[in-house]
Amino acid sequence: MADKKATRESYGEALVSLAEKYDFVVLDADLAAATKTGMFKKKYPERFFDCGIAEGNMVSVAAGIATTGKKVFATSFAMFAAGRAFEQIRNSIGYPHLNVNIVGTHASITVGEDGATHQCSEDLALMRTIPGMTVICPADATEAHAAVEAALLHDGPCYLRFGRFAVPNLTPELVPDYKFELGKGVTYKEGKDVTIVANGYMAHVALEAAELLAKDGIDAGVINIHTIKPLDTALIAAAAEKTGAIVTAEEHSVIGGLGAAVCEALAESCPVPVLRVGVEDKFGRSGKVPELLEMYGLTAENIAAKAKRAISLKK
């Protein structure tokens, strides 16, 4: 089994390891210990600015810094970055298309005990609606690290989502010559009966689902779509063409996130049955993460069941 690490850890490590190579500053809103920007703060205190508990101001400050030619990471929990500061992101960063990377950690159900107010399952939907915004939700430590550098090199605003909960770092063994490319999905496994399109926390769960399906003689492909926008429509449409059925799996509302993006893309390119696994238009709640994942249907078993249903809907 691969080592486990939360993608937020990779974020902190990436900031430190890229600090000498690139000129950027990091902002946080009193959550540096949790978001892991604290690692950067410790090593580069002169390039770290705590904005206090004032996320709207932090985002607009980031925009002002970006106008002077500096790259910026503005960091908070997904709820307060994408949620509370949505309008500041749209108007101060999105509209003028500034080089600010908004980072939302502690997204959705795997926040666990803090409960519904902190479990943002809507951030990707919100960010996806902003014109010109690149939206990234990495699956594991390797990918998260690479995504930070890709966002730095990208000209324009990015939203990056990192999780609180440790996930297996599968990329090194699954994809030997791994190269992170914005807007390009990663094929974990080829299949012929159905394709599971997943990202973030659910990417490794999708692989478990494929194993379950294999036991029933079903050959499921698995694709990791780390960039929800721009979406790798070509890869998804090719998978739909080949397997004739799709299941999406995401730790996010089924409204507006990966599942919705895949439905929108396939409706226009290759209409096949698509079933979505995600948070079913509900708020979260307090609890232990494994129990919550079970309760909200974010499991390999649920993906496998939906895969079978998707296969049965093929014409």
């Binding site: 500053v25 600015f49 709207g56 101001n57 985002v59 607009s60 400050v61 980031a62 925009a63 002002g64 810094i65 970006a66 106008t67 002077t68 500096k70 309008e87 500041q88 108007n91 101060s92 509209y95 003028p96």
Partner: peptide, 21 residues
Amino acid sequence: DMTTGSLGLGFSASCGMALSG
């Protein structure tokens, strides 16, 4: 120098410019 219109946002952006300077 800065896109504005939504009140309050420009003031924060000016702080960012000053900080960067």
